[in-house]
Protein backbone atom coordinates (compact mmCIF):
# COMPACT_ATOMS: atom_id res chain seq x y z
CA UNK A 1 0.00 0.00 0.00
CA UNK A 2 1.54 3.24 1.08
CA UNK A 3 5.25 3.76 0.70
CA UNK A 4 5.30 5.84 3.81
CA UNK A 5 4.14 5.53 7.36
CA UNK A 6 1.16 7.83 7.90
CA UNK A 7 1.95 7.85 11.59
CA UNK A 8 5.10 9.78 10.72
CA UNK A 9 3.61 12.55 8.61
CA UNK A 10 3.38 14.79 11.65
CA UNK A 11 7.12 15.15 11.97
CA UNK A 12 8.79 13.56 8.96
CA UNK A 13 8.76 15.92 5.96
CA UNK A 14 9.51 13.10 3.50
CA UNK A 15 6.64 11.00 4.75
CA UNK A 16 4.39 14.02 4.67
CA UNK A 17 5.40 14.85 1.13
CA UNK A 18 4.47 11.43 -0.16
CA UNK A 19 1.21 11.48 1.74
CA UNK A 20 0.36 14.95 0.49
CA UNK A 21 1.07 14.23 -3.16
CA UNK A 22 -1.03 11.14 -3.05
CA UNK A 23 -4.01 12.88 -1.54
CA UNK A 24 -4.08 16.54 -2.45
CA UNK A 25 -6.17 16.14 -5.59
CA UNK A 26 -8.54 13.76 -3.83
CA UNK A 27 -9.05 16.21 -1.01
CA UNK A 28 -9.58 19.15 -3.31
CA UNK A 29 -12.32 17.26 -5.06
CA UNK A 30 -13.77 16.23 -1.72
CA UNK A 31 -13.95 19.88 -0.72
CA UNK A 32 -15.35 20.97 -4.08
CA UNK A 33 -18.29 18.66 -3.54
CA UNK A 34 -19.19 20.60 -0.44
CA UNK A 35 -18.01 24.16 -0.78
CA UNK A 36 -18.64 26.58 -3.59
CA UNK A 37 -16.01 29.24 -3.02
CA UNK A 38 -12.48 28.79 -4.35
CA UNK A 39 -10.91 30.77 -1.53
CA UNK A 40 -12.69 28.85 1.15
CA UNK A 41 -11.87 25.64 -0.65
CA UNK A 42 -8.19 26.56 -0.53
CA UNK A 43 -8.40 27.35 3.16
CA UNK A 44 -10.14 24.09 3.90
CA UNK A 45 -7.66 22.07 1.89
CA UNK A 46 -4.84 23.58 3.94
CA UNK A 47 -6.74 23.01 7.16
CA UNK A 48 -7.43 19.39 6.39
CA UNK A 49 -3.76 18.62 5.89
CA UNK A 50 -2.84 20.63 8.96
CA UNK A 51 -5.32 18.64 10.97
CA UNK A 52 -3.84 15.44 9.61
CA UNK A 53 -0.35 16.56 10.56
CA UNK A 54 -1.50 17.41 14.05
CA UNK A 55 -3.29 14.15 14.60
CA UNK A 56 -0.90 11.82 12.81
CA UNK A 57 0.12 10.28 16.11
CA UNK A 58 -3.40 8.98 16.49
CA UNK A 59 -3.26 7.12 13.21
CA UNK A 60 -3.56 3.44 13.81
CA UNK A 61 -2.64 1.34 10.77
CA UNK A 62 -4.59 -1.54 12.22
CA UNK A 63 -7.72 0.45 11.64
CA UNK A 64 -8.49 1.65 8.21
CA UNK A 65 -6.23 2.93 5.53
CA UNK A 66 -4.65 6.37 5.42
CA UNK A 67 -7.16 7.63 2.88
CA UNK A 68 -10.11 6.62 5.02
CA UNK A 69 -8.43 8.31 7.94
CA UNK A 70 -7.91 11.50 5.96
CA UNK A 71 -11.48 11.48 4.69
CA UNK A 72 -12.64 11.24 8.27
CA UNK A 73 -10.57 14.28 9.12
CA UNK A 74 -11.76 16.11 6.03
CA UNK A 75 -15.37 15.56 6.98
CA UNK A 76 -14.83 17.03 10.39
CA UNK A 77 -12.86 19.99 9.12
CA UNK A 78 -15.38 20.84 6.44
CA UNK A 79 -18.27 20.55 8.85
CA UNK A 80 -16.66 23.20 10.99
CA UNK A 81 -16.46 21.05 14.06
CA UNK A 82 -12.76 20.79 13.92
CA UNK A 83 -12.26 24.50 13.87
CA UNK A 84 -14.20 24.75 17.06
CA UNK A 85 -12.45 21.88 18.75
CA UNK A 86 -8.96 22.88 17.87
CA UNK A 87 -9.10 26.61 17.94
CA UNK A 88 -6.60 26.92 20.72
CA UNK A 89 -4.06 24.54 19.32
CA UNK A 90 -4.33 26.36 16.09
CA UNK A 91 -3.72 29.84 17.29
CA UNK A 92 -0.06 29.82 16.44
CA UNK A 93 -0.12 27.67 13.37
CA UNK A 94 -2.59 29.24 11.06
CA UNK A 95 -2.39 28.93 7.34
CA UNK A 96 -4.63 30.79 5.03
CA UNK A 97 -4.69 28.52 2.02
CA UNK A 98 -6.22 31.28 -0.04
CA UNK A 99 -3.06 33.33 0.18
CA UNK A 100 -1.32 30.71 -1.89
CA UNK A 101 -3.75 31.01 -4.80
CA UNK A 102 -2.81 32.78 -7.99
CA UNK A 103 -5.00 33.46 -11.00
CA UNK A 104 -4.22 30.17 -12.70
CA UNK A 105 -5.06 28.30 -9.53
CA UNK A 106 -8.32 30.17 -9.23
CA UNK A 107 -9.28 29.23 -12.74
CA UNK A 108 -8.47 25.58 -12.09
CA UNK A 109 -10.34 25.69 -8.83
CA UNK A 110 -13.40 27.13 -10.53
CA UNK A 111 -13.30 24.34 -13.08
CA UNK A 112 -13.19 21.84 -10.30
CA UNK A 113 -16.08 23.55 -8.54
CA UNK A 114 -18.13 23.63 -11.72
CA UNK A 115 -17.61 19.94 -12.24
CA UNK A 116 -18.94 19.25 -8.78
CA UNK A 117 -21.99 21.51 -8.95
CA UNK A 118 -24.46 18.67 -9.08
CA UNK A 119 -22.89 16.94 -6.13
CA UNK A 120 -22.97 20.13 -4.14
CA UNK A 121 -26.69 20.39 -4.77
CA UNK A 122 -27.09 16.86 -3.50
CA UNK A 123 -24.98 17.71 -0.49
CA UNK A 124 -27.27 20.60 0.33
CA UNK A 125 -30.30 18.41 0.00
CA UNK A 126 -28.82 16.11 2.59
CA UNK A 127 -28.52 18.87 5.15
CA UNK A 128 -31.84 17.98 6.69
CA UNK A 129 -30.84 14.42 7.44
CA UNK A 130 -29.67 13.37 10.88
CA UNK A 131 -25.93 13.55 11.13
CA UNK A 132 -25.21 9.84 11.46
CA UNK A 133 -27.25 8.96 8.42
CA UNK A 134 -26.06 11.87 6.38
CA UNK A 135 -22.45 10.99 7.00
CA UNK A 136 -22.86 7.58 5.42
CA UNK A 137 -24.93 8.84 2.52
CA UNK A 138 -22.43 11.60 1.81
CA UNK A 139 -19.53 9.24 1.58
CA UNK A 140 -21.37 6.73 -0.55
CA UNK A 141 -23.42 8.96 -2.84
CA UNK A 142 -21.18 12.00 -2.97
CA UNK A 143 -17.70 10.63 -2.55
CA UNK A 144 -18.32 7.34 -4.26
CA UNK A 145 -16.97 5.17 -1.49
CA UNK A 146 -18.06 1.62 -0.95
CA UNK A 147 -20.11 0.94 2.14
CA UNK A 148 -17.14 -0.79 3.71
CA UNK A 149 -14.91 2.22 3.13
CA UNK A 150 -17.56 4.61 4.38
CA UNK A 151 -17.87 2.56 7.55
CA UNK A 152 -14.11 2.66 7.82
CA UNK A 153 -14.03 6.44 7.51
CA UNK A 154 -16.71 6.82 10.16
CA UNK A 155 -15.34 4.17 12.48
CA UNK A 156 -18.62 2.30 12.52
CA UNK A 157 -19.43 -1.28 11.66
CA UNK A 158 -20.40 -2.02 8.07
CA UNK A 159 -23.76 -3.32 9.19
CA UNK A 160 -24.43 -0.06 11.00
CA UNK A 161 -23.41 1.86 7.91
CA UNK A 162 -25.80 -0.20 5.85
CA UNK A 163 -28.71 0.50 8.16
CA UNK A 164 -27.95 4.19 8.20
CA UNK A 165 -27.64 4.34 4.45
CA UNK A 166 -31.02 2.71 4.04
CA UNK A 167 -32.62 5.13 6.43
CA UNK A 168 -30.93 8.11 4.85
CA UNK A 169 -32.07 7.10 1.38
CA UNK A 170 -35.60 6.55 2.57
CA UNK A 171 -35.67 9.87 4.31
CA UNK A 172 -34.11 11.70 1.42
CA UNK A 173 -36.69 10.24 -0.91
CA UNK A 174 -39.39 11.71 1.27
CA UNK A 175 -37.79 15.11 1.24
CA UNK A 176 -36.54 15.13 -2.29
CA UNK A 177 -37.92 12.37 -4.45
CA UNK A 178 -35.85 13.17 -7.50
CA UNK A 179 -32.50 13.22 -5.74
CA UNK A 180 -32.58 9.73 -4.35
CA UNK A 181 -34.73 8.15 -6.99
CA UNK A 182 -32.16 7.04 -9.54
CA UNK A 183 -30.59 4.54 -7.24
CA UNK A 184 -32.75 3.52 -4.35
CA UNK A 185 -30.82 0.39 -3.59
CA UNK A 186 -27.47 -0.09 -2.09
CA UNK A 187 -24.62 0.53 -4.43
CA UNK A 188 -23.03 -2.45 -6.00
CA UNK A 189 -19.71 -3.18 -4.44
CA UNK A 190 -17.38 -1.64 -6.92
CA UNK A 191 -13.84 -0.56 -6.81
CA UNK A 192 -13.59 2.73 -5.10
CA UNK A 193 -11.06 5.48 -5.55
CA UNK A 194 -9.84 4.54 -2.14
CA UNK A 195 -9.19 0.92 -2.88
CA UNK A 196 -7.76 1.67 -6.24
CA UNK A 197 -4.94 3.58 -4.73
Amino acid sequence: MARYDPGRIGHDPEAFDAFYREHVELIQRFVARRVNDPHRAADLTAEIFLAAIESANAFDPARGNPTAWLYGIARVVVSGDYRRAAREERANARFAGRELLDDDDLARSRDRLDAAAQQRALHEAMAALPEGERAVLELVALDDLSLADAADVLGIRPVTARVRLHRARRRLREVLPEAAAPDPDLPAATTTPMEAR
Binding site: Y20, V24, I53, S109
Partner: peptide, 30 residues
Protein backbone atom coordinates in the same frame (compact mmCIF):
# COMPACT_ATOMS: atom_id res chain seq x y z
CA UNK B 1 -3.82 36.43 -3.19
CA UNK B 2 -0.60 36.22 -5.07
CA UNK B 3 -0.48 38.26 -8.23
CA UNK B 4 0.24 36.12 -11.17
CA UNK B 5 3.86 35.86 -12.05
CA UNK B 6 4.44 34.43 -15.50
CA UNK B 7 7.85 33.25 -14.40
CA UNK B 8 6.32 30.97 -11.89
CA UNK B 9 5.24 27.58 -12.96
CA UNK B 10 4.34 26.15 -9.63
CA UNK B 11 0.78 25.73 -8.56
CA UNK B 12 -1.30 26.16 -5.46
CA UNK B 13 -0.75 22.51 -4.70
CA UNK B 14 3.01 22.92 -4.90
CA UNK B 15 3.03 26.01 -2.75
CA UNK B 16 0.71 24.53 -0.16
CA UNK B 17 2.79 21.36 -0.10
CA UNK B 18 5.94 23.38 0.48
CA UNK B 19 4.36 25.39 3.30
CA UNK B 20 3.04 22.32 4.98
CA UNK B 21 6.28 20.47 4.55
CA UNK B 22 8.12 23.33 6.21
CA UNK B 23 5.59 23.26 9.00
CA UNK B 24 6.13 19.54 9.50
CA UNK B 25 9.89 20.00 9.54
CA UNK B 26 9.58 22.46 12.41
CA UNK B 27 7.49 20.18 14.48
CA UNK B 28 9.29 18.24 17.19
CA UNK B 29 9.43 14.49 16.85
CA UNK B 30 7.02 12.86 19.24
Amino acid sequence: MITHDPQRDDTFEDRLGAELRAFVAERPAP
